[in-house]
Amino acid sequence: MEQSKNRRFSLWLWHSLGSIRLAVVLLILLAADLSLAYFSINGRGIIFEPMNQVGIWPWLKTYAMANLCHTAWFFILLALLTALVINTLVCTSSRLWILFPTLRKHGLSKRFYFSLSTHVMHLGMLAILIGYLVSYTMSQVYPSLTLALKKEALVAGTNLRLELLSMTLPIYEGKRLESFAGRIISPVVQLKIAGPIEERTATLGFNNPVRFQGYSFFLQRFSPRQKSGMSTTRYIVIDVRRDPGVLLYFIGISFFLGGLLFYVIFWIRSRQPRKTTS
């Protein structure tokens, strides 16, 4: 009797955790929380900026705790996202459990693909959120590393040695972007990265990071920024990151977009009027 009660309770809990009603409530709460976040971050970006460098736990213990009235939404966001992950996981696993046996019975039908596409999106969403968690908890970040021209520097805590070989700073001489006349808008730098075993020379620029042995190098700033000015010293500032979550969230994005594409295709096909046979 007791065993059956426990079983019934477990089943009820499982169904409740994966229910669409719960998903809707969580999604609305997430939207409300993120709306609140907009007003909390507005004008206070300086509180949130270090999260990308120090990771989530150190940031929560320091900046978040010290500015609790402006960062409370983030704690709520974490709780809601955790609940959403559980909900999505339970929902998808239980639905897929039902969906695949129908494959044997009805074959590859339109309905099967349509249902599968939503679950592919769910799996993509899970991969994205897990990727974020891995990224913000397990990343190693070495921020604001300054490299002067022809000088070697060691990335602290690693065996990597960096050397700024050359800087190509083409001065904008066109006439279209008047405000950028005499300024550099597309810097390109040659970087030598040496590890314990191999070394590589790579080209680094804005939105063009370099990857080497699991580390990524991002150009943050450079000098000089214009033809004439106070600063003539040639240097760059880079961020070095080892982020194990990147691959996971890019796989998640691909899954989500793939699922969405299939969902849209089958939705369009389901709306087309059926051909009448005479």
Binding site: A37, Y38, F39, I41, N42, G45, I46, F48, E49, M51, N52, G131, Y132, S135, V141, P209, S216, F218, D239, R241, D243, G245, V246, Y249
Partner: peptide
């Protein structure tokens, strides 16, 4: 280098 730029509201 990060998936979300948190300081942009």
């Amino acid at each position: 280098g990060t998936p979300v730029v948190w300081h942009d509201p």
